[in-house]
Design a protein around this nucleic acid. Structure first.
Lengths: 147, 147
DNA sequence: ATGTTTGCAAATCCTTTGCATCAGC
DNA sequence: GCTGATGCAAAGGATTTGCAAACAT
């Protein structure tokens, strides 16, 4: 199912931005990933799919920075796990990260609806909560105690 | 009012941790700051207060990493503005960061109470929301349009 | 044709590490 | 006195930048 990246490419064109091969590949990789990707994971993914089309780190950085600027991808600092990127289009989801075991739990975007409403009403601020990483302690670590 | 850092030092001692001069100075600087500090701001602050006591970057990094590990400071990625640190003790506050003008708005911790409750109830996860940075568009930029 | 984007290499910035010395308990 | 913290210098990693060549529109 390659709907996501097609949509993104349409959006990009509609904004009058140029669509080049490297850009296409980055968008494709992000669209196919069922997860948020680090720069190196992205690079590996693209290499695997298109072994003949080399992509420099520089280009990936620049493409991501551009996609972020035009509001199509989110960038999240996942702490020890590095910085990850993802398309902003599918049903959003976010992550809870356990400070003890390092495990991650995926949570639904609905959890943030109330927060969005509050920030908008109280502070007249339009939050763009594309991908949140929240740290804390997971159930297992809270019970079984820690290291 | 130097209550905050005294408390922290007591806590540290109570945990059987060593209290050295560099550690004391970092805690003092964080306690006096009315804001979250970057590494370099912290360094400048300490230099200003104690010109004769040099502190290597390395030590600041190590002290902060240690304070974070024992749960006394928060670390937040503020995007373009870098990574900031703060003591976790005073009434918490958080920041809204405008993606357009870069301005920041300070918000109350109460905003996150509902979120904490939801995460705890629905995912059995104990979040540690010490300092959040939320990106979006501020009122002024939403009205006056952008660059 | 024109203005943008790419790739390479090098620069820069932030953070961590090895190791000898020094300080807290 | 023993154990762990510090400082220096150097390594490491991630991200950015300058400039010529390649590309999309």
């Amino acid at each position: 199912m390659k709907g996501a990246e097609m949509d993104v490419i349409e959006q990009v064109k509609a904004q009058g931005e140029r669509v080049t091969l490297p850009r296409r590949l980055v968008i494709e990789a992000l669209g196919q990933a069922h997860d948020h990707l680090t720069i190196s994971a992205l690079q590996r993914h693209i290499q695997a799919e298109h072994p003949d089309q080399p992509m420099s780190d520089t280009t990936i950085y620049r493409v991501l920075q551009w996609l972020k600027a035009i509001g199509l991808v989110s960038q999240t600092d996942m702490g020890q796990a590095g910085t990850v990127y993802a398309l902003i289009d599918r049903p959003q989801h976010h992550h809870l990260i356990c400070l003890n075991c390092g495990g991650t739990i995926t949570i639904d975007d609905a959890v943030f609806e109330a927060l969005r409403a509050t920030l908008s009403a109280q502070y007249h601020f339009m939050p763009r909560i594309d991908h949140m990483a929240i740290y804390g302690t997971c159930e297992r670590c809270a019970d079984g105690d820690n290291s």
